[in-house]
Amino acid sequence: MQMSKRTVQFKIYRYDPDKDDKPTMQDISVELDPTDKKLLDALVKLKAKDDSLSFRRSCREGVCGSDAVNINGVNALACLTDVDSLSQPIVLRPLPGLPVIRDLIVDMTQFFKQYHSIKPYLINDEPPPERERLQSPEEREELNGLYECILCACCSTACPSFWWNPDKFVGPSGLLNAYRFIADTRDQATNERLDDLEDPYRLFRCHTIMNCVAVCPKSLNPTRAINKIKDMMVVRAI
């Protein structure tokens, strides 16, 4: 589709703790070139106009996970969102549920704390073989839909359970990653991993609201991973 020059209206959450007492919503518009297709292209143009607008971005192709923001009420990556698909004014806010540092930049400490808490690394204490550990294509396929997580936090910050208990509930992203290691035939710590999650908060705060599935920019399904973990706990208990 050939797009033309057009002016796009925005309402953007602005807060600079260095000078502002409280956040405000800024009305601002920008003229886009035909080549400006994604929301991130528009943000870059806006920043050329007002260099104080602050946001994270890096790869601009949906693999680094930097530019997750709340767009018209929905968490998504700015670099993968077609600007012309959005109703105007386009309302941009930082990801909900995390402390705001400045403008669209949130403090992700709590999110990463939960990720780190699931021991996100392969545990296998046997001396490694000289060559690769073998894994059949079918066993490897179990990791599809799990290992692709880009840690953008769209899912966890769309989850009401994570909003209420970000310190206790691992959240959809962390749990998806936990299952990524549980599902890996090379990992030997399944029992310890399940023990760690068998807790009223860490896992069981998930009430299958499924916001995580709706917003994941990589089309991953944390709810399915969470259910598989729950199933394994049931099987283990019998």
Binding site: Y121, L122, R133, S136, R140, L143, D184
Partner: peptide, 14 residues
């Protein structure tokens, strides 16, 4: 691979 990198696999698991 030993660190856990999810390489794709051949039919014989390599």
């Amino acid at each position: 691979e030993h660190y856990g990198m999810p390489f794709d696999r051949t039919d014989n698991g390599k």
